[in-house]
Design a protein around this nucleic acid. Sequence first.
RNA 1: GCUGCUGUAGCUCAGUGGUAGAGCACUUCCUUGGUAAGGAAGAGGUCAUGGGUUCAAGUCCCAUCAGCAGCUCCA
Length: 668
Amino acid sequence: MLEVILPDGSKKEFDHAVTPMEVASDIGPGLAKATLAGEIDGKVVGFDTKLPEEGSVHLRLLTKKDQEALGVMRHSCAHIMARAVMRLFDGVQLAFGPTIEGGFYYDFDLEHKLSEEDFPAIEAEMKKIIKQDEPFERIERNRDDSLQVVKDLGQKYKIEHIETGLKDHASMSFYQQGEFIDLCRGPHIPKPKAIGAFKILSVAGAYWKGDSNNRQLQRLYATAFFNKEDLEAHLTKIEEAKRRDHRVLGKQLDLFSINPLVGQGLILWSPKGTIIRNLLTEFVSEQLKKFEYLPVVTPNIGKVDLYKISGHYPYYKDSQFAPIHQAEDEEYLLKPMNCPHHIMIYKSRPRSYRELPYRLSEFGTVYRYEQSGELNGMTRVRGFTQDDAHIFCTDEQVEDEFRKCIQMTQYVLSSLGLTDYRVRLGFRDPDSGKYVGKEAVWDQAESALVRVCKNMGITATAEAGEAAFYGPKADFVVNDCLGREWQLGTVQLDYNLPSAERFDLEYIGPDNQPHRPVMIHRAPFGSLERFMGVLIEHFAGAFPLWLAPEQVRILVVSQKFEEYARKVEEELRNAGFRVSGDYRPEKIGAKIRAAQLELIPYMFIIGGREMEEESVSVRDRIDGDLGSMKIAQAIDKLRDEVQNRVVRQVFKGSAGLGTSAAATSDEY
RNA sequence: GCUGCUGUAGCUCAGUGGUAGAGCACUUCCUUGGUAAGGAAGAGGUCAUGGGUUCAAGUCCCAUCAGCAGCUCCA
């Protein structure tokens, strides 16, 4: 006997195995018609999934109204897209076609090069298939039969997948719709007519099983919704996010540029961008002072030998600028990291335990030769400045120092209203040989990291293979406006560079014996370039007053008031504000519009009334006209906002173009 | 790095193998105004670069450079 508990608390009993669809039919034909999938004890299942025969389950019947049904429907739509492609082109080999955040994709191998010009034909064919409304039917087969099915179908990637990826599965399932059969775990919706609106978005290359040694397939990205309005809303959201793109805004607001003559991935900071950059570094410098860091300055190059000792050299070979060959036995590397230089400062004389923790900080510029396809505006570049520091401390001090680093990073990010991040613990991948140092040391470092995060109440996700080659780390990861993840701040533990095999660092302890210090690498922003890129999108170019390159613009109603206005402008400048005046012979509306489009926080409008009263009419970028106030009063208001680093407006959310898998995974 | 797409005025973009276009921005002139676009005139081009096909190439083909999307990578 099975007891089914429905969301309203009502119970139904069945003396045989039933499916969600059968439960729906039992309740009423209307519900049965609307049911697309089920949710058993919190897990999304198909409408045709057999429930257990005994016991008690909580069942939700999912319809168009339920978000969870969207993923199921999208996967069905992926099958329909694959079916359409197979109808239109010869020799189509199917790979994988999962749902992702915001839609789905399907990978194909076929002779014909798919392009946007093919989309209308594929979409038309998909519409035809949806209109036919043939049901999705689940077929379960044992291993041998399954293999025979895909062999009969001539689907070589499916054959390979059953033989490798699914080698432990005794049985597997297929879904058939008309002439189309695909190896698939499901679930699917009963019939395709629930697919209200869909659109193929793009085509791109993707390697089979994500391995660049494998054949490159053609991937069609698409999305689907239950109705046209939702699809339109989604597409609008993508457009809006694209307008927030730091590459677009950076150009529009004249913050930075990239010139091919200078080189790909090398940022030219314009005056306005530099104002923001300098304010950010000043802000961090205040924190460094507070936490007793010692500023240092080191050169941009170093001998290759230095990096042979540090262990960077063999790893960086593929992603560095080529060494500078000065003379026989004299080669330099553009520095890919600041740590070796800082280590040499530590080593410049003997150290006592009384000096520890010894914290060296530098806004150090480093160069890395990233693959050309990876470069992206300011977020992935070949030359960047880290707000870097290295802490040399004793074993006992590690946790405390690590905690302080995390705290500083949290403080810096929250001061900018950046709260939309996740903390990722990057651990080593035990199967990879790219790490230096002993296993026991790694375990020690990794457990220290987990302990601190736990004590601080930080929810962090551990990811194997994300560690630096010298130690594990805690990264602050944010999304850009398109949904791509970027690592910003980072705190990394390092037991390796101080080791005897590397730089052999030591300090003299209270016992008058040499001891080995531990190193912590940390950077709250990570790189100023990437941070700036993310910040532009975070504020959609509308920086808070304290960061805005131009804080106030004086607008005169008519040129008659220019003299008084210039006096006000001067007064503001003397008060420390970044101010300009618009004295063009234009109408006030046009000047306001110009200032608004340039995202200037405050406009001081000056006409006859203001001149008489020795006041200004204040217009706020966000709230509009605030009325007139005395100049001193206006200055106080703005000064207050600057000093408190008030963040009034941020933009969250992405276009949902990320590829992180949706809740329902539908491939094996 | 790989696959695909793109490259025309400062910006956003039109442009059938036959004389290089628009809007905005810019310059000058008129207008002197009250909270998101006043009017007129003008200037501005190696159609990414280099080859090729053709009587003729912004347009077709090839290569290179750069950008975009995705994949792979990010020590």
